[in-house]
Design a protein around this nucleic acid. Structure first.
Length: 151
DNA sequence: GCCAACGTTGGC
DNA sequence: GCCAACGTTGGC
């Protein structure tokens, strides 16, 4: 079992949006970064635990706990010319982008990035590193436990 | 809106 | 295969 942190812009899919979805589950479409894709495609397993993180918004931070609900499969938006995530180089025979489905486990209080930065125990958390931009990052078991403890 | 950091693109 | 130019991310 692995642990992850996944960023979502709340103007796109917020934790409340996720809570309102059928089965409280959403396809994690739109990832167009190879490293993040590889995490989903190669390393995620059903049941992996996820911190749901709001980014590019007024109060960035962790807002929920989720789980990986499906193995990775081709991201449908890459094939749709009308979609902003359309990739003209992708075909159903040779898909380039993959996504898992993510299911909400529970909302949490907002743990802001500012608060996360305040804990020496989280000094190595990937998203706190200088220049970190990856939308999907692994979380160490010790980091996961620590954050659970402050929720 | 700024801008540092990083990823991607494409000419050579 | 190098690397400058460009685009994107995302906190502030």
């Amino acid at each position: 079992m692995r642990y992850w942190l996944m960023k979502s812009e709340p103007s796109d899919v917020s934790v409340d949006d996720l809570a309102a979805m059928p089965g409280q589950t959403v396809a994690w479409y739109g990832v167009r970064n190879y490293q993040a894709r590889n995490f989903m495609r190669d390393q995620m397993r059903v049941g992996d635990q996820v911190f749901f993180y709001h980014s590019s918004c007024k109060e960035p931070g962790i807002v929920g706990i989720a789980r990986v609900a499906t193995p990775a499969y081709p991201d449908a938006t890459q094939f749709d010319p009308a979609n902003k995530y359309h990739d003209p180089k992708a075909t159903p025979e040779t898909p380039r982008w993959f996504n898992v489905d993510v299911q909400l486990v529970r909302k949490t209080r907002l743990v802001s990035i500012r608060e996360l930065r305040s804990y020496p125990e989280l000094a190595s958390l990937r998203i706190l590193q200088k220049g970190s931009r990856l939308s999907i990052t692994p979380v160490d078991p010790a980091e996961w436990k620590f954050i659970l403890g402050i929720l």
